[in-house]
Design a protein around this nucleic acid. Structure first.
Length: 348
DNA sequence: AAATTCCGCAACCGCGTGCAC
DNA sequence: AGTGCACGCGGTTGCGGAATT
């Protein structure tokens, strides 16, 4: 006789605690029911279990559905001899007992797909799950809330909109002007600094999050417009920031960021400027460089396959100039939600 | 080693939708 | 058209192990 536990992967210890908590709910039926109706129920008062499922319950449910299918979920618990509500049985089947479930940790590819699909579909977990065989909406939702969300935030990406946050600075003063997340136009005209630029470190790397950074200085997100960066850079002393945007070199010397040309869709010109090149944003256990390589492989492939030159993005690169020489450190396509949005809209 | 905090995950809850009557 | 029921979905909760203090 096949049991639930014999055909399933070893369950997390969470699932079957040594002392399953038999949280019993006393369901009192409405007094307006007729006696006949009441008799049709299994007793006038029915005890319904809640909480974690025991192996025995799993086995009963699995056996019942294997033999008869689930049919009407509300009748499943009675037919299967379970003291659960139909809803609970349905959930248990969908999220755990279904034989086609993959389980286990999500692969990089799966995570990537979830992010991309979320960018298109939003919190439509069931629709996202339908694109990932063997994964449930609950599983994906949990992954999103516990892991992916944080990773995106670390990278300065708003997990809700998939656009750059670029909220500028937090100061000690709660009166600080806090612009909302920048729209995806790269326009930071309305941003204002409430800290005198003279207070800023001459090292712009210290301004960005994932500290340690001087708390009195800027705490901004990874995506940050070059022009704004230039405008707030302390002048004089040591290196000078050179902003090269849309092919226009302005200054030379010091550190030098270059933004590739933007798409007509308004994708942020300077996305990723501070991601890969500087490497402040770790992704799981993988180094930013490693992660970026994988991430960019997908974007590259999409970009290459795109027949639409507009919106296909460009490249951003981080270079350092040292004593007149110009060394390119990194070159990478900037992250564009437009790319994968377009891609998946055509796929779906 | 004990206490506390953090975090992942399974399960519950409430709401919206579709359908039958 | 109104009502009730079943189902499915997304948000939230709470448990328990892991990590930290």
């Amino acid at each position: 006789m096949m049991t639930a536990t014999s055909i399933l992967p070893p369950p997390p210890c969470l699932l079957y605690p040594s002392q399953p908590p038999p949280f019993i709910v006393l369901l009192t039926l409405s007094s307006s029911r007729s006696v006949e109706e009441s008799k049709m129920m299994d007793g006038y008062k029915q005890k319904l279990r809640k909480g974690l499922w025991s192996p025995e319950e799993d086995e009963k449910l699995l056996k019942h559905i294997t033999n008869y299918g689930h049919g009407c979920w509300s009748s499943v618990p009675r037919q299967a001899g379970l003291q659960r509500c139909g809803k609970s049985c349905r959930l248990r089947w969908i999220n755990y007992l279904r034989p086609d479930l993959k389980r286990g940790t999500f692969s990089q590819e799966e995570e990537k797909l979830v992010i991309e699909l979320h960018g298109v579909l939003g919190n439509k977990w069931s629709q996202i799950a339908s694109q990932l065989p063997g994964r449930t909406d609950n599983e994906i939702k949990n992954l999103w809330n516990s892991s992916i969300k944080k990773k995106l935030l670390q990278r300065g990406i708003d997990p809700n909109t998939h656009k750059s946050l670029s909220r500028l600075l937090e100061t000690h003063d709660s009166r600080t002007t806090m612009p909302n997340a920048r729209s995806n136009t790269g326009n930071l005209d309305n941003l204002q600094l409430s800290v005198p630029t003279s207070n800023l470190s001459s090292d712009p790397l210290l301004w960005f999050n994932n500290g340690p950074y001087p708390s009195s200085e800027l705490n901004v997100d990874s995506e940050f417009d070059c022009s704004t960066l230039a405008s707030v850079l302390p002048s004089g002393g040591g290196s000078t920031l050179m902003v090269k945007q849309s092919g226009q070199t302005q200054v030379s010397g010091g550190q030098y960021w270059e933004g590739g040309s933007s798409s007509t869709s308004g994708t942020s010109v300077n996305s990723c400027l501070f991601e890969s090149g500087i490497g402040l944003f770790p992704w799981a256990d993988m180094s930013p460089e490693e992660e970026f390589i994988k991430w960019s492989e997908f974007l590259d492939s999409v970009e290459a396959g795109s027949t639409n030159a507009e919106g296909s993005g460009g490249h951003a690169k981080v270079e350092t100039r040292d004593s007149g020489s110009c060394q390119q450190q990194t070159q990478f396509p900037y992250l564009s939600e437009d790319i994968y949005s377009n891609h998946f809209q055509t796929q779906l």
